[in-house]
Design a protein around this nucleic acid. Structure first.
Lengths: 193, 193
DNA sequence: GACTTAGTTGAACGATCAATCAAGTATTGG
DNA sequence: CCAATACTTGATTGATCGTTCAACTAAGTC
């Protein structure tokens, strides 16, 4: 859908209905037959992102990988590639919308939250699959949230600076942190054994 | 200035000139006498944020603190308080603008970058002041960038979920990471001694 | 082949947007 | 005290926004 591309490129408010219609080669009446308001269109777009996380984002990023921790950083590498391919114009579409929606606007905000949750849960699964490679008492969910934090914060800064440094530095720090957690888990294992 | 408040509350595009005029009790002609375009107004707002980082943000957050690492997390606590006080409606004004500006728009983007740089440099100074409490080969600048990443990513998620969990979890992870770095520095010190 | 439903067309609507401007009032400097 | 400059007023502009609608065509049903 053209709307997905334009919302992602220009943002929700900036992407006018006229833009979308022109891009899609459609007429206003047609659009409004399916989506009574612009917000309904946004909601459909967010639903598609939600449903697309596994097939469109994770599957391609994880092709041929089995190591769960490698998978986490392969996904982050995917966002890095998006930055590279767009000369650092790329911004996570969900993150953009998250900051663009200022009114309470419950249905939209909920769907953004659901998108974040889907992403975080996928990463949490990786960290859970890592089993004893990570410390026993480490909260896998928190680490997954922190991974999304790193991605969103890194993309935001790299987009602003138009270079990859901030993203790369942030991911390198996260990578170092996870390595230290792995080392601790090894030490833990030795103690038990 | 009312414009600062409204840009921060509603975003740049959503805050109409009429809103700002009403809020400030001024007339359009007056405003346009000082700021020929809306973008010029935004630029002035960004300049004030830039100039306000030290006096308005850091000084109050760091009052009575001398420990440089404590200062870093005191600043993050400040953002947490902003989330609490606003029922998690708060978003970092600079971060919001960073994601709202989609066009190249060099003067605005540069000023956003400068704001980020000011923030990062202040934090980098803290980590540099921490001296041998952190590993010798640790890049202080990267860690400062990572701190901003954590703040922006955490605020984004907490704002979306309307609760503090994501922010708190992210900051807790960063805190844990820094603690591990401190432990390594201690080990380093022992080795040298 | 009549009847219904689904989908399309594009001109038009009112609202609102950023921006303008001619006419006015303070403020200042000589 | 006057002329010049600095600032204010608020109605107005044209563009653009999301949305509507009456007329139209295509597809499916019996």
């Amino acid at each position: 859908m053209t709307a997905m591309r334009l919302f992602s490129e220009k943002g929700y408010e900036s992407a006018s209905i006229a833009d979308i219609l022109r891009g899609a080669g459609a007429n206003s009446g047609s659009l409004y037959h399916f989506f009574p308001t612009k917000q309904d269109l946004l909601i459909e777009v967010l639903r598609r992102y939600r449903d697309g996380i596994a097939p469109m984002l994770l599957s391609p990023a994880w092709e041929g990988l089995s190591d769960p921790i490698e998978k986490v950083f392969a996904l982050l590498a995917r966002y890095r590639q998006a930055l590279v391919d767009s000369d650092c114009f790329y911004g996570c579409p969900i993150g953009n919308l998250a900051l663009e929606i200022h009114e309470p606007d419950p249905p939209v905000r909920d769907l953004i939250a659901v998108n974040f949750d889907g992403w975080v849960n996928a990463i949490e699964t990786c960290f859970t699959e890592a089993g004893t490679r990570l410390p026993r008492d480490l909260d896998r969910h928190s680490l997954a949230v922190f991974t999304l934090t790193t991605m969103e914060g890194g993309v935001m800064q790299s987009r602003t600076h138009r270079n990859l440094n901030a993203f790369d530095q942030s991911v390198a720090m996260l990578r170092d942190y996870v390595r230290r957690l792995e080392h601790e888990a090894v030490a833990e294992g030795n103690k038990v054994a």
